[in-house]
Every structure is written in C-alpha cells, then in structure tokens.
C-alpha cells in the first residue's frame, strides 16, 4: 500500500481485499485473552482531531494499542490550536516528536491530502469535511462481507443526507469496487450535485429500498447545514426514516447499518436500531480490526 490512506481512490481493488482479509485475522486476535500483538511496537501514532468524534477516535486508539504502538491524542479544544497556532505549525511540532503515523480528522475537505504531501509520516484520513472517510467505508464493507459472505452483486441503499456525508462518498467508491450495486436515496435537497459513476438515485424511500440487501442509514448532519434543507425533523422521519414497516420492502434478510452517532426518530426508528436486523454494534467492533489492518499495511510494499 501507499504511504497514506487519504481516499478510497488510493487503493486498488486487490488492496481493498487485502485489507479486509487481514482484518479477519485481526478480528481473531481481538477474541483472545491477550488482545494485543507486538506488530507495530515502538511506532509513534498521533491522533489529530479537529472535529468532535467519539467512536472513530477511540476505535483508532484501541487499534493502535492492540498493535503495541505508542499513542498520542490531540483534540482541538485542549490544544494550542485554540491559541491561534496554524495547522502547519501544529503538524511540524508533531513531526518533531518523530511520529510515524498521523490520523487526521478535519472539517475542511482536502486537509489530509495537503498534510500527506508535507510530512514523511503515514497520514490516515479519519474524515475530512464532506469529502471522505475511508476507514468507515472499509469497516462497512467488512461488516457486509461478514454478514452476507460477499459483496458481489449485492444491492446497497445509502439513505439520507448524502450531500454532507463523507461516509456515503467513500462507501460508494469502496462498495462499487468490490462489485456491489449502490443506490443513493434521499430528498433532492440533500443529494450531491455529482453522482459517482454507476450509482442510481432515488428520491422516494419506498422505491429506493425495494429488494435491497443492505440499508445504510446516514445521520442528518445538522452542523453542516447552513440553510433549511427540509421543513422539519418530523417530516423528514415521515418520508425518509427507516421503520419496520418500510423495512419489509427490502429483501427479507436485509441488514441495517448506521455509521453513528444515530439520531433516533429522525433517520431511523428506535425499534429498527435495536432489532436483530441492525448490525450497528458489529460495525463498531469490526472498526477496530479494520483499522488495525490499515495501520499494519499502510506504507508497506505488497508481497
């Protein structure tokens, strides 16, 4: 794999498959009594989060610790960024610590790409603005493969606030590369201008999820909405919320995913979220194994 993982586009199809198969081995490690291997002992990893995050940051941190790396966490409210330090100066400081890996989340799209060009450390994108979130897409692909056996030929509906979703963007690239057929389902106001090649668009939820094998519900990202994209949360739920009644339109074995954090009663009903159709907590567990695989493989020549 290349030095950095900034976008799913950095990965060839074989590399995506290598990450997934490696993650299956790491998942076995996580089931042991001693859930730790010395694979990246002595490596320094810095988690640099310019946006609030609970699960992605803790998931990366746990993955790093399971690989025996030394971990440093920077989060913006507690760092000198609030004192006015520029991104470049923060990065240079981190570089001086001898960091081997930098995991970056930033509200501006393209920041990880910029950073990857100026540091020698491996840069892993943990979400940049509305652009990409590659490790989320990989863990979603892993979870689908685990539950369904394969991604080849599966129909996957990504539902909700597509426009503001880096998860939707990375997932459409990753799932298509692995042979799944992706649909975007959501209100026209939340549909991106550019639709990736091969992705079908539906504005009607019932139509959009008919016969699908996977429903991926997305969070309505209110913090990124600078104007009114839909009249009310109640109306949004009425038209686009995932409920049991609607789920019956999908394949009888369809699974429901959500990248978290969920807004219950807006994009998904509590009943569905807590049912055995939902694999939301499996996604969290798998995230650790997949991030271990990414950290283990990034920057190394393929065998």
């Amino acid at each position: 794999m290349k030095k950095d993982l900034v976008s799913i586009k950095d990965l060839a199809e074989e590399e995506i498959r290598l990450i997934l198969s490696t993650a299956f081995s790491f998942k076995d490690v996580l089931k042991r009594d001693i859930k730790k291997v010395p694979a990246l002992r002595g490596k320094t990893m810095v988690n640099l989060f310019f946006e609030p995050s609970t699960r992605t940051r803790t998931s990366f941190e746990l993955a790093q610790k399971r690989l025996s790396a030394d971990v440093l966490n920077f989060s913006v409210p507690a760092s000198s960024v609030v004192k006015g330090e520029s991104l470049l100066d923060t990065i240079r400081t981190i570089q001086s610590y001898g960091a081997d890996y930098i995991v970056l989340r930033h509200p501006c799209s393209g920041t990880p790409h910029f950073l990857s060009k100026i540091v020698s450390a491996s840069v892993i994108n943990a979400g940049d603005g509305i652009n990409e979130h590659p490790t989320q897409a990989l863990l979603d692909a892993f979870t689908i493969q685990e539950k369904k056996g394969t991604l080849e030929g599966l129909e996957v509906a990504i539902v909700g606030d597509i426009m503001h979703s880096r998860v939707a963007r990375s997932n459409s690239l990753c799932l298509s590369a692995l042979g799944a057929k992706v649909r975007f389902v959501g209100p026209p106001t939340l549909m991106p201008v550019h639709i990736p090649k091969g992705v079908k668009v539906f504005y009607n939820l019932q139509e959009g999820i008919t016969g699908v094998d996977v429903i991926m519900s997305l969070r309505v990202q209110k913090e990124r909405m600078d104007s009114a994209f839909f009249p009310s949360e109640r109306e949004y739920f009425k038209l686009y919320g995932i409920t049991f009644e609607r789920l019956s339109r999908a394949d009888s074995g369809a699974i429901v995913m959500h990248p978290g954090p969920m807004n219950r009663g807006i994009e998904i009903s509590s009943e569905v979220a807590d049912s055995d159709r939902a694999v939301i907590l499996d996604q969290v567990t798998n995230g650790i194994a997949v991030r271990m695989a990414v950290l283990y493989l990034v920057g190394r020549d393929n065998a």
């Binding site: 198969s21 081995s25 076995d28 490690v29 283990y296 493989l297 020549d301 065998a303």
Partner: peptide, 23 residues
Amino acid sequence: LDISLYRDDINMNKPQPVLRKTD
C-alpha cells in the same frame, strides 16, 4: 500459527507478508 505479527524485521522494509490463519 501465523507469526507475521511477531516478527522482528518489520522495520527492515521487507515486503508485507500475507497474514494467514492462527487457529
């Protein structure tokens, strides 16, 4: 047993071995 994760030559820029099953 797969020993890839316990190797001592990880820093020597060897090609990445494929992880096989430890069972």
